[in-house]
């Protein structure tokens, strides 16, 4: 029998070792697996490489992970926010390595990892600082930059509904990096709003099939104050 449901976020991340590469879904707050990040901080693994679009904002989530000095390197497209003070401080202090990647190249490198692609040529960033030192090739009339996949040990993502096989649906723009990160990691942990019995998800509506998901934790949404 397959049962990917795990009782708590802490239990789902209990084996994350020091030095792991961890993908974290979300675009701003949408799709951000906040409770899983809290559990990762509680787990206390250090020297992590984090792959995420942003580098945290304000004092919670990824920003708190950085503040807790768990992160050695971050691979992202847009670290600078008006409230990214924890990243800014660690970066300026030289405590944090940054690999800045154009957002579409970041997405495609993650997708490539999950799809078993060895490398790919993209026109993005050709002739810019972010392509310096990279192999390039002219194909037809255009110039391209060679980019390699980004694999991860863990992916922490937020979805909407899940069954015990790990099939996932998402809600609106909270989908963002979830499906591609799920495929790119050895162990994908999804936090979901609701778990449902097998067969309750419309197979036509499943966005991430369970083959890409190893662990599912239900996190009941906070009830809004009246």
């Amino acid at each position: 029998m397959i049962d990917k449901f795990i009782a708590t976020a802490q239990a789902a991340l209990a084996d994350v070792p020091d030095g792991a590469t961890v993908m974290i879904g979300g675009f701003g707050g949408a799709g951000m697996p906040s409770e899983l990040i809290d559990a990762l901080i509680a787990r206390g693994a250090k020297q992590l490489t984090v792959v995420s679009n942003n580098a945290g904002s304000a004092d919670a989530g990824l920003a708190a992970l950085i503040a807790a000095k768990c992160v050695r390197k971050i691979i992202c497209s847009f670290p600078r926010q008006t409230d990214s003070w924890h990243f800014d401080k660690a970066y300026r202090a030289g405590e944090l390595e940054l690999e800045l990647v154009p957002q579409g190249t970041l997405a495609e490198r993650i997708r490539a990892a999950g799809a078993g692609i060895g490398a790919f040529y993209t026109p993005t960033a050709f002739g810019t600082k972010l392509a310096e030192g990279k192999e390039t090739r002219r194909i037809g009339e255009r110039d391209y930059v060679l980019e390699y996949p980004i694999h991860a040990d863990y992916a922490l993502i937020k979805a909407d509904r899940a069954d015990r096989w790990g099939n996932l649906t998402y809600r609106m723009t909270a989908r963002n990096f979830g499906p591609i990160m799920a495929a790119a990691a050895q162990c994908t942990v999804a936090q979901v709003r609701e778990t449902v019995p097998l067969g309750a998800l419309d197979p036509e509506a499943v966005v991430t099939p369970g083959i890409f998901v190893q662990r599912v934790v239900r996190i009941a949404p906070l009830r809004k104050a009246a």
């Binding site: 670290p79 800045l100 154009p102 957002q103 579409g104 190249t105 026109p123």
Partner: peptide, 13 residues
């Protein structure tokens, strides 16, 4: 602090 987001992809695509 550099931040590029999707600008390079949009410019190229």
């Amino acid at each position: 602090i550099p931040a590029v987001g999707g600008a390079m992809d949009l410019a190229a695509g």
